[in-house]
Design a protein around this nucleic acid. Structure first.
Length: 601
RNA sequence: GGUCCGGUAGCUCAGUUGGAUAGAGCAUCAGCCUUCUAAGCUGAGGGUCAUUGGUUCGAAUCCAAUCCGGAUCACCA
């Protein structure tokens, strides 16, 4: 049980006993004591004065006396300042906590709870390579999945690949027109980049044709529809839907190139999926649901045969769910897939990691599912995140103004290499260890950078200013970890017995905790609640902020107090335990962000 | 225009179930490496918490209005 919870409970019991009436945890607040006051945790008394009709000072004194006297294992003393009851927790409580947990690599994580959650993320299009926005999506999805696992959920990571549609045909047409039968192999280009180039070529040609038509006096709207290359793309889409063999072959061939490229990128950034759905397999889903919806009168058929749902009563609009030609639209496919996910996995919650430009779409999706009484309707949750933009504005793959994911990763690793070499600490590293270190640091910096911000906020990335390696960054935390490992190795190599031997029996160390030591233990103790909070909010930045605070506190402690040459043997043991536990929590929490930590750097 | 999201230090961001003098990082300035890794540590300067009003012992946090920025409101996906 967390210390906060213990304090709440002891205060509730004390108040109930003192004033002979019912209290509960919500009657007062417990928070960490501000550093400028003496004490560890503070009970805010103002909310009690109305009920008890006593001054905060009187309540504080009565409660303080009682709680310190009756919970002497927990509290050693108290003070009252202006309505705040500051309690000091006994050193023994903290020693005990350290002893029990310092070497537990699972500290803070929760037991399995029997619930299953699907997290869908990444969702790439097979007509272009991944860019910086996809990286944010991937890192978020991965991290949220890990955070949920740490909270005891059974997590299924899924991905829906957008492998069909007009945009895919565009790359295909362009390759037919300009490709000269070249391949990724023949041009030594990564497959996804190779195909992406043709997507850009399509749009260049399309633009040229539209302008040509306009110059001949055709109106803009008409020109956009009549440009020959666009008509070819639309024809190809029809051929694809009719399973025309040569179109299907080309589609398969080009998609295979893209997948090969994606695999390389996913592997590099550490993304993977338990289940991959392909839109080419799922785009017909939902048709049956349309039938059922019509029967239930949730949907209405228009005179022209198209099918609609009216959401105006819910403050939204009318939405089409099936075209007059009988084909299903985006939202219908999504409802079908949502249902399929539930049937296949019997999930308790379905999380979609999708950009905030789809907020409206996801709201509609959930609402339709609810109106249809689908069993999973209430469990659909959209984890919406803000776009990553450049200082010049939005990234547009059509115009080539994107920060490419692979380039970005390359650059980060190169920067890591440069920084590391400048510092000159790695002279005795083997070549493969060095390469791994550069990747750990470079990718760590990038993941931390993208995850430390609240997902729902859009962020501006300036490629001119490279991602920092100092301060609130991944490498800062990694460095803290490596330094702890270095100390532990040094100290324990002189001691054949495992470090941080628990202080045996009931004997407590003959030492008092210094403020930095206590602050560290207090921070470590909170880890479990931080994991919970991150899961409730589906927000990895909670973890990132926590790790940074922990690492920062440790660094202050490290500079201020020696571990190896501590003032006494007891002190040394306590500090070794603190260092070990800090390292464990850093490693475990960085893992929740998908960032590995190096043993040395 | 409707709906949703955001506005906190020069920049990037924490803090929002109401609590003590609003915090970090970067940048700027001043210090700290013969002692466990200086990718570190210590300190300084820097704030109309967008604006106005309200709620109360107390508001960056809650309510209302306004201003600014963004997203969205397709028989595209």
């Amino acid at each position: 049980m967390s210390i906060t919870k213990k304090i709440q409970e002891s205060a509730v019991e004390s108040l109930t006993h003192l004033y002979e009436q019912e209290f509960n945890e919500k009657d007062f607040q417990v928070s960490q004591t501000n550093p400028e006051f003496e004490g560890d945790y503070t009970i805010v008394l103002f909310s009690l004065i109305k009920n008890l009709k006593k001054s905060p000072d009187v309540i504080g004194k009565e409660l303080g006396d009682y709680i310190v006297k009756n919970y002497s294992l927990l509290f050693s003393k108290y003070n009252i300042i202006k309505g705040f009851l500051n309690l000091t927790v006994t050193d023994n409580y903290w020693f005990d906590l350290l002893n029990k947990n310092y070497n537990d690599v699972c500290f803070g994580k929760h037991a399995m709870n029997g619930k299953k959650i699907m997290v869908e993320y990444s969702s790439p299009n097979t007509n272009k390579p991944l860019h910086l926005g996809h990286l944010r999506n991937n890192f978020l999805g991965w991290s949220v999945a890990e955070i949920l696992k740490a909270n005891g959920y059974d997590v299924v990571k899924s991905c829906i690949v957008n492998d069909r549609g007009i945009h895919i045909c565009k790359s295909m047409i362009a390759w037919q027109m300009f490709g000269n039968m070249e391949t990724p192999e023949s041009t030594k280009t990564k497959g996804d980049h190779f195909v992406g180039e043709y997507y850009v070529k399509f749009n260049d040609e399309y633009k040229r044709e539209v302008e040509e038509l306009i110059s001949k006096g055709v109106e803009k709207d008409k020109a956009e529809k009549e440009a020959p290359i666009m008509q070819r793309a639309q024809k190809m889409l029809l051929d694809w839907e009719n399973n025309k063999p040569e179109v299907i072959d080309l589609w398969k061939k080009m998609n295979a190139w893209v997948y090969k490229g994606f695999d390389v990128t996913y592997k590099r950034i550490g993304s993977d999926f338990d289940k991959t759905y392909y839109e080419s397999n799922t785009y017909l889903l939902g048709k049956q649901i349309v039938e059922e919806g019509l029967a239930k009168k949730v949907f209405i058929k228009d005179d022209d045969g198209s099918i609609w749902i009216d959401l105006t009563e819910d403050g939204l609009d009318k939405k089409i769910v099936q075209r007059k030609d009988g084909t299903s639209v985006y939202i219908t496919q999504d409802i079908g897939l949502a249902e399929k996910k539930y049937e296949e996995y019997k999930i308790d919650k379905s999380i979609y990691v999708i950009g905030d430009e789809q907020n409206y779409h996801m709201k509609v999706l959930k609402l339709i599912a609810e109106k249809l009484d689908l069993p999973n309707a209430k469990n659909i949750f959209h984890l919406s995140y803000g776009m990553v933009e450049l200082p010049s504005g939005k990234m547009k793959s059509r115009e080539g103004t994107v920060v490419d994911a692979d380039d970005m990763v390359d650059e980060m690793i190169a920067t890591a290499k440069q920084h590391t070499e400048e510092l000159g600490k790695v002279k005795d590293f083997e070549e493969h260890e060095l390469q791994q270190l550069f990747e750990t640091i470079g990718l760590g910096a990038m993941k931390f950078y993208l995850l430390r911000v609240d997902p729902k906020k859009r962020m501006i990335f300036n490629p001119e200013e490279s991602i920092d390696f100092h301060g609130f960054t991944g490498p800062f935390v990694q460095y803290t970890y490596a330094r702890i490992q270095s100390v532990l190795k040094k100290v324990t190599s002189n001691l054949p017995i495992a470090i941080g031997i628990p202080v045996t029996g009931n004997r407590q160390p003959a030492t008092n905790l210094l403020s930095l030591e206590k602050e560290l233990i207090l921070t470590l103790e909170q880890y479990s609640q931080i994991i919970e909070q991150a899961a409730t909010e589906l927000n990895p930045s909670v973890i990132a902020n926590y790790i940074f605070h922990l690492a920062k506190t440790f660094n202050s402690f490290y500079t201020e107090h020696s571990i190896a040459n501590a003032e006494s043997e007891d002190k040394k043991q306590v500090r070794l335990q603190i260092a070990t536990m800090t390292a464990n929590v850093i490693k475990s929490s960085m893992q929740l962000l998908g960032i590995p930590v190096p043993e040395r750097m």
